[in-house]
């Protein structure tokens, strides 16, 4: 569980770390769209080179970046295998009733690469951006939509609090689980229905505690004069600088290259 690197921020002071979170979020979004816009292998050159460039500049170790893939290896493999079997075409191998086709293999590889690039790209965002500036970025990006009823500030506050309490609640889960195991509870065996039933002694105390914490926190926030997003200032103001502009420009070049590759 602790091996998941997605969402784990590695503090640093690299060029990528210092970018405005809005830049990183927007570029990551555009990068994702680009991945889906590509239709052949040559096109991948552009996002791959961009990703390598960004990784080098971020000074994040490649090993760490790739570790983010670990929990998702199963999904990537499944994508590859399913595609290999499902697509009709030239049969190159027969496996019982299933045919592996050349087109299938190609399509499977294409999809797998897309997934890998998608995951490593987004991991790079979360590895170089602290949760708090990520939330800040999202809040600022959404704030123009406040007028049409998007609760930008509230969403951001919810995310911050969730991030703050995840470690606390994980610790608490571990403690309650152990306390119930000390009373003979069994969380590991039995069929699906039994297992779900056995979770009650864990979930009830966990919910009660979460509600109590929520209550306490609400009181503490009010005591510190929290009254929503109106008239609030921020410690860290976001500012777009020259390097943000440069980042947009560089990415645009790569994106144009990628789109052009569609017409090869």
């Amino acid at each position: 569980m602790r091996e998941i690197t997605i969402g784990q921020y590695i503090p640093g002071n690299s060029l990528v770390h210092r970018l405005d979170p809005r830049t990183k979020i927007l570029v990551t979004l555009a990068y994702m769209i680009l991945l889906f816009a590509l239709n052949n292998f040559y096109g991948y050159i552009f996002p791959v080179v961009f990703l390598i460039l960004a990784t080098i500049l971020s000074r994040i170790s490649v090993r760490y970046l790739l570790k983010g893939l670990k929990p998702l290896i199963f999904i990537i493999t499944l994508t590859f295998v399913l595609n290999s079997f499902m697509i009709k075409g030239r049969v190159i191998y027969e496996l019982g009733p299933l045919d592996i086709t050349y087109e299938g293999l190609v399509q499977g590889a294409f999809m797998a690469i897309r997934l890998i690039l998608l995951i490593t790209g987004t991991s790079l965002l979360t590895l170089t951006t602290s949760p708090i500036s990520l939330t800040d970025g999202i809040e600022r990006l959404l704030s123009p939509f406040k007028k049409v009823g998007v609760p930008a500030h509230e969403l951001a506050m919810m995310m911050t609090i969730a991030l703050r309490f995840i470690p606390t609640l994980l610790e608490e889960t571990d403690k309650i689980m152990k306390a119930q195991m000390a009373r003979g509870a069994d969380f590991e065996s039995g069929n699906l229905i039994n297992r779900a039933k056995n979770l009650v002694p864990l979930l009830v105390p966990l919910f009660i505690s979460a509600f109590r914490r929520a209550d306490d926190l609400a009181m503490a926030m009010e005591a510190r004069c929290y009254r929503g997003g109106e008239n609030r200032t921020r410690l860290k103001e976001l500012k777009m600088t020259f390097i943000d502009m440069a980042t947009f420009a560089v990415f645009t070049l790569f994106a144009i290259g990628g789109i052009a590759s569609r017409f090869l």
């Binding site: 000390a182 009373r183 003979g184 509870a185 069994d186 002694p201 105390p205 009660i208």
Partner: peptide, 30 residues
Amino acid sequence: RQKVGLVFQYPEHQLFEETVEQDVAFGPRN
């Protein structure tokens, strides 16, 4: 675990049943 009973810190945080009787019965029932 039956022979060595372990009472955690703030053990009241592990209570979950509807009645006191049922909660105390959790261990013996297991």
